[in-house]
Simulated assay, not measured.
Amino acid sequence: MMPDLIDGSENVSVHGIFNWILLLIIFSAITVIANYLGYKHPMTDSLIGMAILSVITLIGVWMERYLPFNISSILYISVMGIAIAFPGMPTSDFVLYFVSKIELLSIVTVFLAYVGIGMGKSWDEFKALGWRAIVITVLVIAATYYGAAIVAHIVLVATGVPAV
Rank of each mutant, 00 (worst) to 15 (best):
I25A: 14
I25Y: 12
I26H: 10
I26S: 14
I26M: 15
F27Y: 13
S28F: 03
S28I: 09
A29E: 14
A29I: 15
A29P: 04
I30C: 13
I30A: 15
T31V: 13
T31D: 04
V32I: 13
V32S: 03
V32P: 04
I33W: 14
A34G: 13
A34K: 10
N35H: 10
N35Y: 08
G38R: 13
Y39L: 14
Y39A: 12
Y39G: 07
H41A: 15
P42M: 14
P42I: 13
P42D: 15
M43H: 11
M43W: 14
M43Y: 14
M43T: 15
T44D: 12
D45M: 11
D45W: 08
D45T: 06
D45L: 07
S46M: 07
S46N: 05
L47M: 06
L47W: 02
I48M: 08
G49S: 06
G49F: 08
M50T: 00
A51K: 01
A51E: 00
I52G: 05
I52F: 10
I52S: 06
I52L: 14
I52V: 15
L53R: 01
S54Q: 02
V55N: 01
V55H: 03
I56N: 14
T57V: 04
T57D: 01
T57Y: 06
T57P: 02
I59A: 04
I59E: 00
I59R: 02
I59Y: 02
G60C: 04
W62S: 04
M63V: 07
M63I: 09
E64A: 04
E64Y: 01
R65D: 03
R65V: 04
R65P: 00
Y66W: 05
L67C: 06
P68S: 11
P68A: 11
P68Q: 07
F69S: 00
F69H: 00
F69W: 06
S72W: 12
S73G: 03
I74D: 11
Y76D: 01
